[in-house]
């Protein structure tokens, strides 16, 4: 579904150029769920943003669904395949747009008809009733906002969902609800996930495989079983596992 090879991402121009990601390579199969972990500044979110088309200063290869993507231009088919959910549901929803506006705009952008029925369906999918349709973000809790953000991403009926720390702004009890929702949605819609998180337990719960990043490089790619057994081959991975246990 997603293949990344030889990916470099940088910010700024020499002499102030910062290489945020260096020579990253991994691939994610259809229906798989892949995690990216590492400390802040390790480049994990940067990879996600480069895939989503939010950063254009990169080189290397990003293939989505077997087709290489262009650094600057993405066609409508791309955005129909790939959608993203951001970290902070308090910042990612427009404060003066109701849930209805947010979702109908997303549906309209994808050229979808039958918007009324689809909105009801989307809200149902993410576990919000019809009663939430005309609410504004300030009338929603953090968990409910994140559900709306997920519904917005699902509006395009994507096959690849990029999740950037989707639960780190939420309370643990709400985190459990959102993680369950993500597991259910993946099973129902046959989605592929790439999830960034600093929480190994969360990645362990959602993902099948993960890449450990440090200083812009992928130091190790491992399965979640290996992670659970504490079988990192790299010293940094083991350090991360002990620090989060």
């Amino acid at each position: 579904m997603l293949t990344i090879d030889n990916l470099d991402v940088w910010f700024g121009d020499p002499p102030d150029r910062v290489d945020a990601v260096k020579n990253a390579a991994f691939s994610v199969a259809k229906g798989e769920s892949f995690g990216l972990v590492g400390e802040s500044g390790s480049g994990k979110s940067t990879i996600l943003r480069a895939v989503a088309g939010l950063i254009d200063s990169w080189s290397g290869r990003i293939d989505v669904d077997g087709r290489p993507v262009h650094a600057r231009r993405r066609d409508r088919a791309f955005y129909k395949t790939v959608q993203m959910v951001f970290q902070d549901p308090y910042a990612s929803l427009h404060p003066r747009h109701s849930v209805d506006t947010v979702l109908s705009e997303a549906l309209g952008l994808q050229g979808m008809g039958d918007i009324d029925r689809r909105i009801t369906k989307l809200l149902e999918d993410v576990g919000l009733g019809k009663g939430f349709r005309f609410r504004y973000p300030h009338q929603l809790s953090g968990g409910q906002r994140q559900r709306v953000a997920i519904a917005r991403a699902l509006a395009a009926e994507p096959r690849l969902l990029l999740l950037d720390e989707p639960t780190s702004a939420l309370d643990v009890s709400v985190q459990a609800e959102i993680l369950n929702l993500l597991v259910d949605l993946r099973a129902e819609h046959g989605l592929t996930y790439v999830m960034v998180s600093h929480d190994l337990a969360v990645v362990g719960h959602i993902c099948d495989r993960l890449a450990v990043m440090q200083h812009g490089r992928i130091v190790e790619i491992m399965s979640v079983e290996a992670l659970r057994k504490g079988e990192g081959t790299q010293e940094y991975t083991r350090h991360l596992i002990t620090a989060s246990a």
Binding site: V172, S173, Q175, E177, L179, V183, L200, A201, I241
Partner: peptide, 20 residues
């Protein structure tokens, strides 16, 4: 108890997290 059990754990994987 609910708070404690809603945390995902590396050493004890579950299919679904119990919700508070």
């Amino acid at each position: 108890q609910g708070l404690l059990s809603s945390l995902p754990r590396l050493d004890a994987p579950v299919k679904r997290l119990p919700v508070l």
